[in-house]
Simulated scan of single mutants.
Amino acid sequence: MRAEGSQGRREARVRPRHTSQDDLRVREFEAYVAGAGTRLLHLATLLTAETPDDNPHARRLLTLALARTYASWDRLHGEDPYAHTRQCLATRFANGAWHRRGGLLRPRARPAGLLARLSPQERLVLVLRLREGIAEEQTAALLGLSAERVRAVLHRAMTAVLSPPPRPASAVGGVKAVPS
């Protein structure tokens, strides 16, 4: 009988699972996502070279990066959550695209557009340097490359973006090409 009584008292002292600190954390994170979500989705869409209207890979990439940010929300200690999420996006994109593992960026149809002509590495460096304004040294540290390599990749990406796409070969010597 005594064991039942002490057990009952222990159960009565159990704290509720959700405290006001948890609620505050959720509200802070929701406010962060409401403020930065659109910009982060645009960043992910640029990385995946999908169209803004049809970007399931970018949405999945962003969801995974936001989940990682939420998991470490209490450990950020005043750090910029946008920079943390951007780093998670870049890292996850690099691992999924460069190494072709995990199926994160499994191709459906070849995306069309200016950035689709670039390799994933070129796209990542171009977007981080020009769209996000991250310094060359920080980009190199984030991607595990040398600053010279980042500079070379950016130069190659800029050349590809600024040069016109190759045109189909014209007919030679008055012979017309047969449409297929």
Score class of each variant (00 low, 15 high):
D54L: 12
T51S: 10
G78F: 01
P56E: 00
L47V: 03
A65C: 02
G35F: 04
L66H: 08
E28Y: 06
Y70I: 00
R59V: 07
T45F: 04
E30H: 10
G78P: 01
L61G: 05
D23G: 08
H42Y: 12
A31T: 11
L46N: 08
G37P: 09
D22N: 06
G37E: 13
D53M: 10
V33G: 10
L47M: 08
G35S: 14
T48W: 10
W73R: 01
T38E: 11
G37K: 06
L41D: 04
R59C: 09
T63S: 07
S72C: 10
T48P: 01
T51Y: 00
W73P: 10
R25W: 14
T69D: 02
H57T: 14
V26Y: 15
A31F: 03
E50H: 01
N55T: 11
S72T: 07
Y70Q: 09
E79K: 08
L64P: 07
H42W: 15
A34K: 06
A58I: 06
L61M: 06
L64A: 09
T63C: 00
R25E: 15
L61A: 03
A31M: 06
A34L: 09
D22F: 05
H42M: 11
P52I: 01
T45S: 08
E79L: 04
H57Y: 10
D23R: 15
W73N: 01
V33C: 12
D74C: 03
A44Q: 10
R27M: 09
G78K: 03
T45W: 04
L61I: 05
D53V: 14
L47K: 01
L41H: 05
L40E: 09
D54A: 15
E50R: 02
R39I: 00
R59K: 14
G78W: 01
R25Y: 15
D22K: 05
R59I: 05
E28K: 01
L46C: 08
T69G: 13
A71K: 11
R68V: 07
R60T: 06
Y32W: 13
L62T: 02
Y70R: 12
L41S: 01
R68T: 02
L47R: 04
L76C: 00
L66Q: 07
A44F: 12
R59H: 06
L62P: 01
L64W: 03
R59N: 05
